[in-house]
């Protein structure tokens, strides 16, 4: 006999990939490494969300090069498939922020959600006016409340801008010097960061004292002995 009632009611959690596919991402197989890393992360993301009693995870993606476009609409994790993207064009980060800010309010966001997770992956310098886009993004309540993470792909990325996206003093951009560390960081954001918003985890006794929206565990600890591939 089945017992009464139904599934515990969950909140919507939007997880959004913001991917740089400007021309420079063609160099040294960076775009291939990125495509590979995201595909690697999907099963781990699915496993993590299976044990989730709080969130309905919805994943979407937008790319920016010359202009910015949504490439994957909000999709349930079990149906999520990554389509390989190609690299060409400029680095219109500001356009990406503007596109993002268009959805970070209610509606289309739900009345009963969790702070969204925004993950920015970039290897270079914006070629447009990123500042206006960022201001617009942060003027949206859901943009401000979002957990914003950025990954610099290679040494040439402008980490100052990636830091401004995250916000002052909270966390730092993750620097992926090679494909292995990119894979690790992508797995980390798609599981640990996802669950920081979605599934409460043990909290550590000693934390840095910063007051944030969501308590995010430390990034993966890695040694820097590996040779730089890029």
């Amino acid at each position: 006999m089945t017992l009464p009632g139904g599934e515990i009611s969950k909140r919507e959690l939007h997880f959004i990939w913001i991917v740089d596919c400007s021309g420079s991402m063609r160099d040294d197989g960076k775009i291939q490494a990125l495509n590979y890393a995201i595909k690697e992360a999907i099963p781990h993301m699915q496993k993590e969300s299976e044990n989730n009693i709080q969130a309905n995870l919805l994943i979407s993606a937008l790319k920016f090069s010359t202009g910015a476009q949504w490439i994957i609409p909000p999709t349930r994790i079990n149906e999520f498939k990554w389509t390989d993207i190609e690299a060409k064009g400029e680095t219109d980060l500001g356009q990406a922020f503007l596109l993002l800010s268009e959805i970070l309010h209610i509606p289309p966001m739900t009345e009963r959600g969790l702070p969204p997770v925004l993950v920015l992956l970039s290897d270079g310098q914006p070629t447009d006016n990123f500042k206006d886009g960022l201001d617009k993004l942060l003027s949206e309540p859901w943009g401000r409340k979002a957990i914003r993470v950025s990954i610099a792909i290679g040494e040439d990325a402008n980490t100052d801008i990636l830091q401004r996206f995250i916000g002052d003093g909270e966390r730092q951009p993750l620097l992926a010097r090679n494909p292995e560390s990119l894979t690790k960081y992508i797995k980390w954001v798609s599981t640990v960061v996802q669950s920081a918003s979605a599934r409460p985890k043990s909290q550590q006794k000693y934390y840095d004292g910063s007051i944030s929206n969501v308590d995010i565990p430390k990034p993966p600890e890695m040694i820097s002995g590996a040779t730089d591939v890029w």
Binding site: G5, G6, E7, I8, S9, R11, I106, E111, R112, G113, L114, P115, P141, W142, K145, I211, S212, N213, V214, D215
Partner: peptide, 20 residues
Amino acid sequence: FLNHPLEGKIESSIKSLDLP
């Protein structure tokens, strides 16, 4: 009960359930 004992109307009125 398949519900948190403190999650009632006050919880559902919160739009974004963040740390604060």
